[in-house]
Design a protein around this nucleic acid. Structure first.
Lengths: 381, 381
DNA sequence: CACAAACTGTCAACCGGTTGCCAAAAATTG
DNA sequence: CAATTTTTGGCAACCGGTTGACAGTTTGTG
């Protein structure tokens, strides 16, 4: 087997007020013995100057061992076909013998290429984004790219800041449910490849779940269960996707001859869901579709605490089908967004763009579907 | 206000079979106007300075503008006090005018310092680690450090691999619930500062929740509710913490004159919990303490599905108090580990070590406590 | 077989900072 | 005011790769 000569690099210093985390998923199996490094417990703290004894091998070491020029080594390891098969072999053997790993910093410096792409999400603690992250990460990793994540704390300004900063050290960027406006997104896209998830921005490649199908199923299901009036709990005001979902609810309700009202939430979290419980009761609706599952869970908890029976008195339908949506009692009925697929598609798109391919002109659509569980059903009231 | 001259760097290339994700949390508020850069497409500052209008300014640009040597710029920006206040001012002004950001790659190359520390967790999808990550990230960020995360997929080998790889590009390392053996950990610690969470390794600084208190409360509470026989659902075989919890359960049970049996789980997840339901019923225990909340949730779901009433017939107590533990019906009683605090303490410890302080000799202990919710109670059977 | 085209390896110039060493300048002291 | 110490800034050598230019070899073609 050909030795794997690449390695993984890392972020550097956090900016005050701008923290950084990086996640490294290791499912590898081959890698040369590591335990051997167990030298005497002379715990050498990396003292100020302490370079010394055990720095890792460089292409110069390989060059010396292989009897060639360092530039030849560099080419052998990164420009396939540029050197003869014979030299290639010699160099690879030497590299393996020395257990060589490229220094990512040294590599990034002259090239500017970082083998890295960014993903900006509104809130990392929101499980919704978890699948997107997973999806993007896995396709990224399968193509030797590293995913860099940033959170915008649901703020458009922070989002722009983080994106800008990221863009300078990343090869491309994925924006999941961006809150900034279209112009800002296009401005970013002018600098480096950008792909947007959960929103349709003209002139920028997008991956968007088509809510029509899922919402249609949900509304028809509610209508079939005797509901006449449904409420939609909206997400953040700047959320493009929240607007689409509300449109979907409206048009599906119209089709099914139901009334639909919109209720605003303070934030798209469990707490936010709790806070809208009263508004829901006041609205007179017997069925609720929420912008996301967290709102649905919070709402259900609060309603149940107030003695409202779910789904007998009020049916609740969430959105996204996040991890934990089935922890509740009754388990949550929800419109599943293929978030993992979105993340994965977006990453594929971006990586293709990084490799020279043009991005698609229109948005890529993926389907949503209703997952019926216990929180929705026939109206008994 | 003094301009912030630092910036954030990123990871580089993923290794085949070793994926990388990085999370960047932006809660910043100050930062020189960034939105301004987005209005007109070509609003790239005075740009005409060098040649290409797209590359970001370097210390050489600043040096030229300020009329000093690049090395002086370097010192002004990173070695406080090394240059005179006057020159310092001139340089800082020039830097701000050019909207300078250090190139993290260029900085890391000669110094080896990355302003980065690693955190290795067994499973990123496990919410248990979420708080640890959060805690470590936030203290890290407050001290201008970037957190790099890796997942070991519950495998000791992968863990060693990931740690080794990480160690080469990170200033220090935090191991959360490591699965590798003590020797391997000490070997890592010999290279660079290492802090361990959820395990006590001799000779290495550790942050460990003291399960005694929480488990004591849990067992006494169960005893007071009439239970005579309790079961412990164990976690992964290599988990040091799982062993400690089992010991805690045994000794507390002995003290309270209860019988205690141990049941093995296949994996510490919701599914793992479902799979042990039969074993639990067979064990004859009327109360269960699980290695973690996920197991408890899965177990409870499966038992309820089998018609077992919780807590009337069986009481269930989880461990950790993860996000979502209260989504269940009944909400989960659990022994809360101050995971966030562990992460935060570990980061503080590590950063102190990076700044020259010696690590503590013994392990740092943090308390656990019982959180009583609905899944435990009086035995009615 | 002569000549052009294709292939290979070397040289050297970066990429953008950092830092040891040294000398000029400033501050302190006798 | 001269001698000495302390500051301060400049020079240049890295850190570890990448890459354009170029020359020596091979290979291909007529």
């Amino acid at each position: 087997m050909r030795p794997n000569l690449h390695t993984t690099g890392w972020p550097l210093n956090g900016e005050a007020g701008l923290a950084t985390v990086m996640l490294l998923v290791a499912n590898s199996d081959y890698d040369v013995a590591v335990t051997e490094a167990t030298n005497s417990g002379a715990a050498t703290v990396p003292s100020r100057r302490g370079r010394g004894d055990k720095s890792s091998p460089t292409i110069y070491d390989i060059a010396k061992l292989a009897g060639v020029n360092p530039s030849t080594v560099s080419r052998a390891l990164s420009k396939p076909g540029r050197v003869s098969a014979k030299t290639q072999k010699i160099i690879e053997d030497a590299a393996e013998q020395l257990n060589y790993r490229v220094n990512p910093f040294a590599r990034a410096l002259p090239t500017g290429r970082t083998q890295t792409f960014g993903l900006i999400v509104a809130d990392i603690t929101n499980p919704t984004f978890f699948d997107i992250i997973r999806g993007a990460e896995s396709t990224g990793s399968s193509r030797d790219y590293t995913l860099v994540l940033a959170e915008s704390a649901e703020s458009a300004d922070t989002e722009v800041t983080a994106s800008r900063r990221m863009l300078s050290t990343v090869d491309g960027l994925i924006l999941a449910s961006p809150r900034m406006d279209d112009e800002q997104i296009r401005a970013l896209a002018a600098d480096k490849p950008v792909v947007v998830i959960n929103r349709d921005v003209d002139g920028v490649p997008c991956v968007v779940p088509d809510v029509t199908k899922g919402i249609g199923q949900a509304v028809r299901s509610l209508a079939a269960n005797g509901h006449k009036q449904i409420a939609y709990v909206a997400g953040p005001a700047q959320s493009w996707m929240s607007a689409r979902r509300w449109e979907g609810v409206q048009s599906a309700s119209e089709w099914s001859k139901l009334g639909a009202v919109r209720v605003e939430s303070s934030k798209p979290t469990v707490d936010g869901g709790r806070y809208v419980a009263r508004d829901i009761l006041d609205s007179g609706a017997t069925a609720v579709i929420t912008y996301n599952d967290l709102l649905a869970i919070g709402l259900m908890q609060e309603l149940q605490a107030a003695g409202v029976r779910v789904p007998d008195q009020i049916s609740i339908v969430g959105f996204d089908d996040i991890f934990g949506a089935d922890f509740t009692t009754p388990p949550l009925t929800t419109v599943r967004s293929p978030l993992g697929e979105c993340g994965s598609r977006a990453a594929t798109l971006l990586l293709d763009m990084l490799h020279g391919n043009e991005g698609p002109s229109g948005a890529i659509h993926v389907d949503t579907e209703l997952v019926v569980r216990g929180s929705s059903g026939r109206l008994l009231a």
